[in-house]
């Protein structure tokens, strides 16, 4: 401390280091952030603006402020006297979508939890094979998988043929282009999203806890619901969110398996940018969908925080 000279040199070196690091970091982050900000986040802003404009005759927008898109979501304007009449068409599409996504989430949970548990209790080598089998469909084209599902559930598909050959049914079951088909398709599409996070939390589970449960007189069901499920809860919640959100915004599944008749939000939005040529309304619907997703994520984040503060 006696000589001031080296001290200020040290301070300068520390400052220089920090500055260098900041500059390096900024350059390293620049490309990724620039691309995502420009191509993914800026467009959301444009969508917000578009949702308050007037549709152009041949698609696109005309720059005239209007809240019609949001009004149209709930009401229909009477052609003759210009009064607003409640219109349930779009609300019911949203409710249908939420219902289908919730149902698919529940279905995926019922199938996915036992599967994840089964994998987690396997020896390490077998586990990797099972995990690979569960992950692989996730990396194959969703469109093709959905198309493959269409092939087997349609009237002359393999399921109907087998059931008829076995004499269980005399005429084919009509599954395709029904809600059931969409429901099955959603589970099929997003099942890996349910299995993987549950597996991740079960893998960390110390199975001597299960033995301790039995040791303390719990039977199988009680061990399952009082020991295993509570410990796997973070994975279950993550899995449900990961199935619900893409399920809610699904496009391909209802398009192919619902035959374009049983609309979900995703198709309705896409339609506004295609045949319906109502970009502002499509933008508004997309924003409402995004708001739903954000609400789900926020509720989850708040619950997680409350859980953490209860434990701590």
């Amino acid at each position: 401390m006696s000589d001031r000279e080296p001290q200020s040199a040290l301070a300068a070196a520390i400052d220089q280091n920090k500055r260098n690091e900041r500059v390096t970091r900024a350059w390293l982050l620049a490309p990724a952030l620039a691309i995502i900000l420009a191509i993914s986040i800026l467009p959301l802003g444009i969508t917000v603006v578009y949702s308050f404009l007037t549709p152009g005759t041949y698609g696109g927008v005309t720059w005239e402020f209007s809240t019609d898109s949001y009004v149209q979501f709930l009401f229909q304007r009477d052609i003759f006297d210009d009064t607003l009449v409640f219109n349930s068409a779009y609300v019911s599409i949203f409710l249908r979508s939420i219902g289908l996504a919730l149902g698919a989430t529940l279905g995926a949970l019922i199938l996915g939890f036992p599967t994840a548990y089964f994998i987690a209790t396997k020896p390490r080598e077998q586990r990797n094979i099972w995990l690979f089998l569960i992950t692989l469909p996730f990396w194959t084209n969703l469109l093709i998988r959905t198309y493959a599902m269409l092939l087997i559930i349609r009237d002359e598909g393999i399921i109907n043929i087998m059931l008829m050959k076995a004499g269980i049914i005399s005429s084919p079951l009509t599954i395709l282009y029904t809600d059931t088909a969409v429901f099955i398709g959603l589970i099929y599409s997003f099942l890996p999203f349910m299995v993987l996070p549950i597996y991740a939390s079960l893998e960390k589970l110390d199975f001597s806890l299960v033995e301790a449960g039995y040791d303390l007189y719990a039977n199988r069901l009680k061990v399952l619901f009082h020991v295993i499920v509570p410990l796997a809860k973070p994975g279950i919640v993550a899995g449900c969110i990961l199935v619900f959100i893409p399920g809610l915004g699904a496009y391909i599944t209802p398009e192919l398996l619902g035959g374009g008749k049983k609309l979900m939000i995703g198709n309705m939005i896409a339609m506004q940018f295609g045949a319906s040529r109502n970009w502002p309304f499509g933008s508004a619907a997309a924003l409402i969908l995004m708001a739903l997703v954000i609400v789900v994520l926020l509720v989850n984040a708040l619950a997680a925080r409350r859980g953490a503060s209860n434990n701590g």
């Binding site: 191509i39 467009p43 969508t47 893409p246 995004m290």
Partner: peptide
């Protein structure tokens, strides 16, 4: 920064699709 990088994963694809189309 994490949020921005992961943003394309968090938003339904159909929303990204129409937003990008608009841009």
């Amino acid at each position: 920064v994490y949020g921005i990088i992961n943003q394309p994963l968090m938003i339904p694809e159909i929303v990204t699709a129409i937003a990008t189309l608009s841009l």
